[in-house]
Amino acid sequence: MLSRTAENLYWTARYLERADSIVRLLEVAYRISLVPNTKEGYDNEWESILSTSGTKNEYLSVYKEIKKEKIELFLLFDDSNSSSVKNCITKARDNIKMVRTAVTLEVWNAVNSFFYNYYDLTKKKYLSKDLPEIIDLVKRNVNLIKGTIINTQLLNDGFDFLILGNYFERADFTARIIDVKYFILLPSTSLIGTQIDNFQWSLMLRSVSSYRAFKWAYGNSEIDYIKIIDFLILNSKCPRSLFFSVEKINYHLKRLKKHYKENKNFSSKIEGLFRKLKKLSVNDILDEGLHEFLSNFIKDISSVYSDLEKKYFLGS
C-alpha cells in the first residue's frame, strides 16, 4: 500500500476519534453547567477542558477570558482552532478523500454525509441551547462510521491503519484527561470522600463515557480513586482504558508485521508497554507517581508512533 494511503487512513480515524473526544468533554462541561452553585469549580472545569484538548494557549490568544459560550464556539466551530470539531471533521474528510478508493463506498458515504451534516450547522448562528443536539450528532456519526468500518472494510492492512489511528488517539487522550485531573485521584488530598470528590470522579468517568460501564464493572460499591485508576488505566474490558488501547495497538501492529511478512520485530516497544501494563497494579502506579506514570506513558506511545511513522509512512 502507498505510504500516504496508510497515513491518510490513520489520520482519518485519528481525527474522527478526536472530534468524538472533544464533544465528550463538552458534554461533561454542559452537565456541570446544569448543576447549581459550582461557580468556583465551574471556571476550573472549563479551563481543564481546554487543557485536555490541548488548546488552552490557542484559546487564550484569541479570546482572553474563560467564558462558556466562547469556549463552546471555539471547540466546535472555530477555524483558528486546529482541533475544533469542525476542523477535525474537515481534516478527516480531506484525508479519506485522498484515499477514496482504499475504503468502501459505505465508509466514504458515512464520512461524507457526516461532513455535510456538520457543515449545515455552521450555516446558522450557534446557540448554547443547541449543544446537546450537536454533541449527539457527532457521537452518533462517529459511531456510525466506526461501525461501518468494522462491518464493511476488508480486513487488510488499510483496516489496521484505521484502527491504529483510532487507538493512538484514544490512548493519548485518555492519558491526558487523567493527567489534567491527576490530583483528584491522589490519596493525599483532604477532600477524599466528600461530595466534591465524588462529583469530580464521576465527571472524569463521564468524560470518557464510562460512568455506566464503571457501575457495571464494580457494582454498586462506592467510587474511590483506586477503582477509577484501575478502571481507566488497567482494566482490560473498559474500551477507554489505556491498557485496552495498548492491547489494540499491539495487536494491529503484529497483524501488519504478519501481513508484510517482516522478520524484524518492529513492535518490541509496544510489546514491552503491553507486558508492563499487564503486570501492573494500582499501587505500582501510585508508587511511581501517577503524574510521572502518565507522562512516561504519553512519551512511550508517541515513540511507538514515531517508529510507525518512520517505518510505514515515510516509505523509503
Binding site: 502507498l2 500516504r4 501488519l256 510505514y312 516509505g315 523509503s316
Partner: peptide
C-alpha cells in the same frame, strides 16, 4: 480511473528518484 485500472493514485510527494530510477513510497518500502 486509478480504481478501475487497478493502479495507485500518487501525488508528487509519493514518488522519489534515486540514481535515475523512479520509486513509489509504500508501507513495504520503495
Amino acid at each position: 480511473l486509478a480504481d478501475l485500472m487497478g493502479v495507485e493514485l500518487v501525488q508528487g510527494s509519493d514518488l522519489f528518484v534515486n540514481n535515475n530510477i523512479t520509486y513509489m513510497k509504500t508501507t513495504e518500502g520503495p
